[in-house]
């Protein structure tokens, strides 16, 4: 049985797809067979972030409607043979997704994969509620900013009441906080909510902090999940997140302002 992870947030533009791509690649690099599914029907973008946009033939909706098999639609990643991408449909609308249809695809994937990462669309409509419906774990991606924190809390309410686990009275979805676009410098100046502030408000287990980083745009520009940029701060932060998710104890980094070297102090580098 696969573990189903939903990457969700409520608010758009906080880093769900970046996180989904990085998590899926990270899990696969650790040797786990992983599938990542784009639930943003009509506005697919995971393919672009993963760099496989020109290899899309069939999509999630085709599989649900029986127009293609799962194996025909799954795209094998060229960098890691344990990773597969199931793209969203670009032409249909989100009404094409049904509880039964999604359930069947996830069930079939479960036979073959260890982890299934569901990249949720923004909002709280069909695509988003279906992305989290079957989840075992939820990664709530949040920016240290008022509207994102509020939407994350709203999402937590939905996870706790509208998921399969909630409806069937099973053990609730495990919820993790991933704080992204974090700027320790601005936190220090009192211009940005700190990790502790966000945790106080949401009372969630902290999976990791991803610093605001130029590496993220560079990665999406070139269609390479940022976790593969091992030299970058964001890449390293995502590697830590994957290890933590897999149960390793990894100390949190990128939370405090880095001390400048003497050279840096002298020249303001």
């Amino acid at each position: 049985m696969a573990r189903i992870i939903v990457v969700t947030s409520g608010k758009g533009g906080v880093g769900k797809t970046t996180t989904s791509a990085a998590m899926a690649m990270g899990l696969a690099l650790k040797g786990h067979r992983t599938a990542v599914i784009d639930f943003d029907v009509g506005l697919r973008n995971l393919d672009l972030i993963m760099g496989c946009e020109r290899r899309v033939v069939y999509d999630f909706v085709n599989v649900i409607n029986g127009e293609s098999t799962l194996n025909q639609a799954l795209i094998k990643d060229k960098r890691c043979d344990k990773l597969f991408i199931l793209p969203a449909s670009q032409t249909r609308d989100k009404e094409s997704l049904t509880v039964e249809g999604v359930g069947k695809v996830l069930e079939d994937l479960s036979k073959d994969f260890e982890f299934i990462v569901c990249d949720s669309p923004a909002g709280i409509e069909r695509g988003a509620t279906l992305a989290m419906y079957y989840a075992d774990d939820a990664i709530v991606v949040t920016n240290p900013e008022v509207s994102s924190v509020r939407d994350s809390d709203r999402m937590l309410g939905i996870l706790a009441s509208k998921s399969r686990r909630a409806e069937q009275g099973e053990e609730p979805i495990k919820e993790y906080l991933l704080l992204t676009r974090y700027s320790p410098e601005r936190v220090k100046l009192g211009e940005m909510l700190s990790v502790e502030d966000v945790q106080d408000i949401l009372s969630l287990h902290l999976l990791g902090v991803i610093p605001e980083s130029k590496a993220v745009l560079n990665a999406s520009n070139s269609g390479v999940p940022v976790i593969l940029d091992e030299k970058s701060d964001a890449g390293q932060a995502f590697s830590d997140v994957v290890r933590r998710y897999l149960g390793e104890h990894v100390t949190h980094r990128f939370i405090d302002v880095e001390k400048k070297s003497i050279f840096g102090r002298l020249f303001g580098g």
Binding site: E145, V146, V149, R150, V187, G190, E191, M192, L193, S194, D197, D200, I201
Partner: peptide, 9 residues
Amino acid sequence: TASIAKERL
């Protein structure tokens, strides 16, 4: 402004 944000939230 961060502490104002926290209180409001």
